[in-house]
């Protein structure tokens, strides 16, 4: 990884190892100011978790990184270029190099599981059908989806399976950059743990940068390298779990107090 990392450093030397760089971001919906002078740098190869209260603009920030929303002021640069002032081919290559797992899966309900995962591959128009088949089966095996489900429609799947198929689709193009929006929301603890395990194993195999929005503390602690806390319209703290926990901001205190009660629960259960 170091070799590749260094190699990519030279490629992104103008942004100093930032795979995503947010500078002076200002977002406003009507009268409601969501972000004000927000700065953030996502390092290459790390797992960054975005944390914040509801309405703090986590999902909006994620959507701006994805190019789904335009910021009022400021820039959001992905792979060293902004989505709104680069040419079509570059934009296409950015889209190919990033994968997204939407909160509710966003699988195409008209397509089967197999076709959902094959869709981005087919859209490239450069892979033949037998390669696509092998790639899809490989991706489905990676997310532990049994082959007998390959011909099912999304409506026939359970919530956990929808998440895993959506992850397989997000991984279809071997992205360097993976966006996860609440990856474990709506899954039971066991499923969410196995989902986190899955992402961890995939990370060692495929080596990508992950940006995720999550509220789940166990996901946060096991998966993330750094945590960025959004409050008061900007990033109030960024660092590893310990550094962030020590921060004195009231939101962080109350957020991790909940974490504290969770460990209490674990203690009770152990007893």
């Amino acid at each position: 990884m170091t070799l590749i990392g260094d190699d990519q450093n030279t490629q992104y030397n103008n942004v100093q190892d930032c795979i995503i760089e947010v500078k002076g971001l200002h977002t406003q919906f009507g009268e409601n100011v969501v972000h004000q002078d927000l700065n953030l740098c996502v390092h290459n190869g790390e797992v960054l978790a975005l944390v914040g209260g509801s309405g703090s603009g986590k999902t909006t920030l994620l959507r701006q990184m994805l190019g789904l929303e335009t910021p009022v002021h400021g820039t959001v640069k992905v792979f060293g270029c902004s989505r709104f002032d680069c040419d079509y081919n570059l934009l296409k290559s950015i889209r190919i190099r990033s994968g997204v797992l939407f909160q509710s899966g966003a699988l195409f309900s008209a397509l089967s599981v197999y076709d959902n995962v094959a869709f981005p591959l087919r859209e490239l128009h450069s892979l033949n059908e037998s390669m696509i088949r092998d790639l899809v089966m490989l991706k489905l095996a990676m997310v532990a989806i049994d082959t007998k489900h390959a011909n099912k429609m999304p409506a026939d799947l359970s919530g956990g399976m929808i998440k895993r198929v959506a992850l397989a689709r997000a991984l279809a193009l071997d992205p360097e950059l993976l966006f996860l929006d609440e990856p474990t929301a709506g899954l039971d603890p066991e499923l969410s743990e196995s989902f986190v395990e899955l992402i961890l194993t995939l990370r060692t195999e495929m080596k990508f940068t992950i940006i995720m929005v999550t509220h789940d503390l166990s996901t946060l602690s096991t998966l993330s390298d750094r945590i960025a806390v959004l409050a008061d319209q900007h990033v109030v703290a960024i660092g590893n779990l310990k550094e962030v926990c020590d921060h004195q901001h009231p939101f962080i205190q109350s957020f991790f107090k909940a974490a504290h009660s969770q460990t209490k629960l674990a203690k009770i259960v152990r007893r």
Binding site: D134, M137, L138, T147, K148, E205
Partner: peptide, 17 residues
């Protein structure tokens, strides 16, 4: 090694009914 192991035991696509 890992990724080649995975591709080694790639299951076949079930035939549509």
């Amino acid at each position: 090694e890992n990724i080649f192991k995975r591709v080694n035991k790639l299951p076949a696509l079930p035939k549509p009914t």
